[in-house]
Design a protein around this nucleic acid. Structure first.
Length: 288
DNA sequence: ACCTACCTGTTT
DNA sequence: AAACAGGTAGGT
């Protein structure tokens, strides 16, 4: 489900609304989704900040009043159908809720909100680890350790993308863009959309791209991700933001999910084919 | 650089 | 009944 724009939307909603809140209690319905090797108890921790790397949310928790409690990272990956949202603490009965956190406001008022982790397919995971582990690669979730550069970072340039793509010259560009070690945060939707914007056919071998094409691709990636963030992400079916609301970027998709329909630019029939193991859509006229 | 497994739900 | 879905880990 969520790719970079969806995770960033959730991050912003949560950062704004629960920074400074304390975790009053944790309700763990499905223990296997929560990887907590040190068995850290989260009750009493304060939510300090919420960051993001690629599709990972990084929630920093400050130690409770209890003497000796060290800061902790709670790292969330939503995979395909995961949701992380806030709602009134009285609400119950939703299916596939695996973890919920009752929160108490920073002013010490009554607990009235809960942070809910819901995931139909149960691929999503939450890792809990001591905060100093971010400097200790062995403790991190594997995918976070090897993550490529951030496409919305100001340091993300055509040179950076070119260097990263150079690691996978013998793969179709679609596959390279999906590889989180090459670039963090793109998934099937935004890889297809960025390739359309840049006029590059998804099956082009990465090593065959000219530097002008890599420059266009760099700009296209940034543009589509920024637009999608400004629309609060793409809701095809499951994705919701930090307040359980749908995004709007699905109304702006040019090629993803449009195989067999006319290109919105030139009218040609959008092609559809499996590439790098994923359904891929592109315009045979606008892209080469 | 591919393949399958992990899950549940929806569509064909 | 079978194919498919926004992702990734692990095996070959």
């Amino acid at each position: 489900m969520p790719e970079l724009p969806e995770v960033e939307t959730i991050r912003r909603d949560l950062q704004k609304n629960i920074t400074g809140c304390r975790i009053e209690s944790v309700n763990l319905h499905t223990p296997e989704v929560l990887i907590n090797n040190d068995q850290i108890r989260l009750d009493g921790y304060r939510i300090d900040s919420i960051g993001r790397r690629g599709k990972y949310l990084l929630v920093r928790l400050a130690g409770s009043e209890d003497a000796g409690a060290q800061p902790v990272w709670m790292i969330v990956h939503l995979r395909m159908t995961g949701r992380l949202y806030l709602q009134d603490s009285g609400v119950t009965g939703a299916k596939h809720v695996h973890v919920s956190f009752r929160l108490r406001g920073p002013d010490g008022l009554t607990a009235d909100k809960q942070l809910v982790f819901q995931d139909t397919r149960r691929f999503g995971r939450i890792w809990v680890l001591p905060a100093d582990s971010l400097g200790n690669p062995l403790d991190l979730p594997g995918g976070l350790r090897t993550l490529g550069p951030e496409p919305l970072d100001e340091n993300f340039t055509a040179e950076v993308l070119g260097r990263q793509l150079g690691k996978r010259p013998h793969t179709p560009i679609k596959g390279a863009l999906l590889d989180q070690k090459v670039l963090a945060g793109l998934g099937n939707i935004y890889a297809d959309e960025a390739l359309f914007l840049s006029g590059i056919t998804p099956s082009r071998m990465t090593g065959s791209l000219k530097s002008a094409e890599i420059s266009r691709l760099t700009a296209s990636i940034r543009k589509v991700l920024e637009q999608a963030v400004s629309c609060q992400g793409t809701t095809l079916r499951d994705y919701v933001d930090g307040w359980n609301r749908k995004g709007r970027f699905q109304e702006c998709l040019q090629v993803y999910g449009r195989g067999g329909s006319p290109c919105l630019t030139c009218g040609s029939e959008i092609s559809k084919q499996k590439l790098a193991g994923r359904t891929t859509c592109w315009c045979p006229t606008c892209q080469s």
